[in-house]
Design a protein around this nucleic acid. Sequence first.
DNA 1: CTTAGCACTCGATGAGCAAGAGTGCTAACA
DNA 2: TGTTAGCACTCTTGCTCATCGAGTGCTAAG
Lengths: 340, 340
Amino acid sequence: MDLDDRKFRILQAIIDDYILTAMPVGSRTISKKGGMTLSSATIRNEMSDLEELGYLDQPHASAGRVPSWKAYRLYVDRLLRVASLPPEESVHVKEIFKTRMDQMEDVLSAAARAISELTDYAGVMIAPKAGRVQRVQLVPITATTALMVTVTDNGVHKDSVVPIPRDLSPDHLYMISNVLTERAQGRTIAEILPMTDELLQDIGLHRSLFPSLLDRLARQMEPDSATVVVGSTSKLLAQPEFNDIDRARGLLSALETKDQLARLLSARSQLEFSITIGPELMLDGMQNSSLVTVSYSLGGGAGAMGVIGPSRMQYGRVLGILSAMRQALNEIDEKPGKGS
Amino acid sequence: MDLDDRKFRILQAIIDDYILTAMPVGSRTISKKGGMTLSSATIRNEMSDLEELGYLDQPHASAGRVPSWKAYRLYVDRLLRVASLPPEESVHVKEIFKTRMDQMEDVLSAAARAISELTDYAGVMIAPKAGRVQRVQLVPITATTALMVTVTDNGVHKDSVVPIPRDLSPDHLYMISNVLTERAQGRTIAEILPMTDELLQDIGLHRSLFPSLLDRLARQMEPDSATVVVGSTSKLLAQPEFNDIDRARGLLSALETKDQLARLLSARSQLEFSITIGPELMLDGMQNSSLVTVSYSLGGGAGAMGVIGPSRMQYGRVLGILSAMRQALNEIDEKPGKGS
DNA sequence: CTTAGCACTCGATGAGCAAGAGTGCTAACA
DNA sequence: TGTTAGCACTCTTGCTCATCGAGTGCTAAG
């Protein structure tokens, strides 16, 4: 069931053309442009075969052929070449993070915007996975609430408001923070949770307080939808496939449900890169879209970033841009004043 | 140049109809539906006058009339009635903030989403203005960086990474935090900035450190684009005016430049409510859109929220929803475990 | 001042037609 | 046996043209 070399070349030519034009590709086009010396009739026969094999679709009887998701899959698996960036763009990418970034948030949204800008698709970022706890500190807010700030070894920090007993002074909180820090330091959340009992024994004083704190700690450490940043989506609307407003709406609203995106991206933060095509995403409103991701590391933690765009995507170009971004992000670590 | 009562009523009928149908309104429609006992010919004459006065536009010679922004302005100034919510929706609004919200972020995005959901336009929120500093705390991250967490009296907190001298122990940082807190407590940023010299004298030890910290503090306190949250924008695409994809793109990209929105909203956080129509916004891509805002207070700080939609907006309904939201937000304060 | 009546305008709709792109099939050819 | 020229056929696209109808402005009568 494998394709012979000629079929490959023809399929590639079709995909290349379709990616550029978004128009169904006819046999004559390939016969002329494709660098092949075959007549359109021969191409037609081959195309007919390719359709039967499920690599091409025909919108209607007298239109050209359109690649199916199966074709894209083959394309990225076997035919894809990563396009390296032209030098001026490459420089541009390096520039993005030149300005001071105090917060993880800043880095993420700058990167997501940049990805959108460079690719003309929608850029998406997920923050690096929180690593091991490095410090926990309680900062008083009101008489009965405090802010629990957690810093991890990859520089990610999170905070949440926790209730505290009324009679705790700031110094008390600081002491508790130190105990918490001592106990939690260097551990992942999975390691911390069973420690509850031990902790409770240590500080008989605030028995009631700690289960709640550990709960929060656990919640803070898991990747959540808040750590997903979507870049410019308006770029997407320029793509011809979204002249159909309903499709556009479907995709946009899919992009707005951040927890879906969080799942997708966080699942891919272990993969150096990934390409997921249309139906493979198994999400409503994204049957005709693809997700391309690369992982990156920031402060030692692994995150993922990518672009979402029509399946007819310039995969090579996009991968090139994403690779450049990865490198730029990784370099942030080496600089002082780095992203939180 | 004032309009007589009948012109008012006719104009109102036209706007009411147009808001519902998004179609140019003809004289016959008004004559029949408008509750008036005038013939279409009479209406026609009046409409002709209204057009001359700039309240109506005519897309083309043989179409009906469409309200101009001037008409909407008049409408909201003099003819608008706030629609109170049907009880079941009112209950729904109260439910939104029932779940525990640890972070300001959570509250904002839940609210923005809810506004979008209820109105079918795009909801926007800006965080309450930071008030007076209540506590400043430095949490060590690495040997040379710390997280500066600032808590204000209205519960807003912000953080940013600051460089610190290499030889500071956590306890040192805690002491410095206490000094900073003592000095800054109860003051606004405008009051803190001139204090630099005083502070430097107090702690001769870390002269070089403090200007940088105060800088950060100042930056933290100003409202920034990060505090703007936009709810679901895909709802907007359902509006018939955005069948024109270019318009949709224009508006969406306007919604993506958050600092513009930040300016708009923060300028309106002092007003109980505001309605700004198309050209009055003076922004590209929003000539045909309106912004309706109400202020709210959370933790004692004033913020603003609103919706952005086509000028042909159900102003009364939107105001009703926003009022309900304001009330729901204000009530969060009274509960424990409140928004950050 | 109101309104009935009427001529006029102009967009929307749909039919009809020609052009063009593309296909599949067949038959000839190497 | 694979390739290709040729051709009939299909279907979309764009165009024109006529028609329809909503809506207007004007005029003259009530």
